[in-house]
């Protein structure tokens, strides 16, 4: 339990750190990366609501907060990918993905605490975001925009999304079996979830700092 709590607080701090970087350098961040800042904001708000719910409402509405957070977060990240890759397939995926997520979210509001539905909703979200990342990688290979990919902030965002949501996907796929068959309380498994979030927000922070540095250099040269 301590491990779960500590990882939860660390991941909350990491998303807050990303948000602070975003606020501190707002003027040096372009439209695309403002979406990363918006994702950090949604994450910070999600954490605040969840902590408030834990302390003041005995963890009531935790699932609803998590589901709404997931919907907003997925929308913002998919919008970011649409901004960096405007191919027809990417646009089609964007609309299909967000429509599916929205429908699942509405159904979850109707059928409260339906574990199967929640699993489906999560799998759709994670697979969709993984597809966006892979689509961006194919775009990189097609158009070869830079000599060194590691210097492209968008590459780091895509890598973080791929790594993070692959991990989330495995945790989610085991969720149903653990709860229904093994009657496990998932504490250890949710800790993995938090560890992935820590890595995710750290890499996003690096990508944002890299973007700010690139913008500053470009402004200086100009």
């Amino acid at each position: 339990m301590i491990f779960l709590k500590s990882t939860h607080y660390i991941q909350a701090f990491c998303s807050f750190f990303l948000f602070i970087i975003f606020l501190g350098n707002y003027r040096n961040i372009n439209q695309k990366f403002k979406l990363v800042g918006a994702a950090a904001f949604v994450s910070v708000m999600g954490n605040i609501f969840q902590i408030t719910s834990t302390f003041f409402f005995h963890s009531a509405y935790m699932n609803q907060i998590g589901e709404a957070y997931q919907l907003f977060f997925a929308f913002i990240i998919s919008l970011f990918f649409l901004q960096i890759n405007r191919s027809k397939f990417s646009q089609l995926l964007f609309y299909l993905f967000n429509l599916s997520c929205f429908v699942c979210w509405v159904l979850l509001l109707v059928y409260l605490n339906d574990n199967n539905l929640f699993s489906i909703y999560s799998v759709i979200t994670y697979v969709g975001l993984i597809l966006f990342a892979i689509l961006y990688f194919t775009y990189l290979l097609k158009y070869l925009p830079a000599e060194n990919l590691l210097r492209i902030p968008e590459f780091w965002v895509a890598a973080a999304v791929l790594f993070n949501f692959s991990g989330y996907l495995i945790v989610t796929l085991t969720y149903g079996y653990l709860v229904e068959v093994l009657k496990e309380n998932m504490i250890l498994y949710w800790s993995f979830y938090n560890v992935f979030s820590i890595i995710f927000f750290s890499v996003l922070s690096y990508a944002l700092l890299l973007h700010i540095k690139t913008v500053k250099i470009a402004l200086h040269e100009h």
Binding site: I134, F137, L140, L141, L149, L150, A159, L162, F163, S166, G167, L169, I170, V171, L173, T174, Y177, L178, L182, E184, L188, Y189, F192
Partner: peptide
């Protein structure tokens, strides 16, 4: 189950990592 979970997780993460490295190399 935990061992199976860890193996599955390791495989998926390795796969993600391989994709990233492949993209860079390619």
């Amino acid at each position: 189950f935990f061992v199976i979970f860890l193996i599955g997780l390791a495989i998926v993460l390795l796969l993600s990592f391989t994709i990233i490295v492949f993209v860079i190399a390619y």
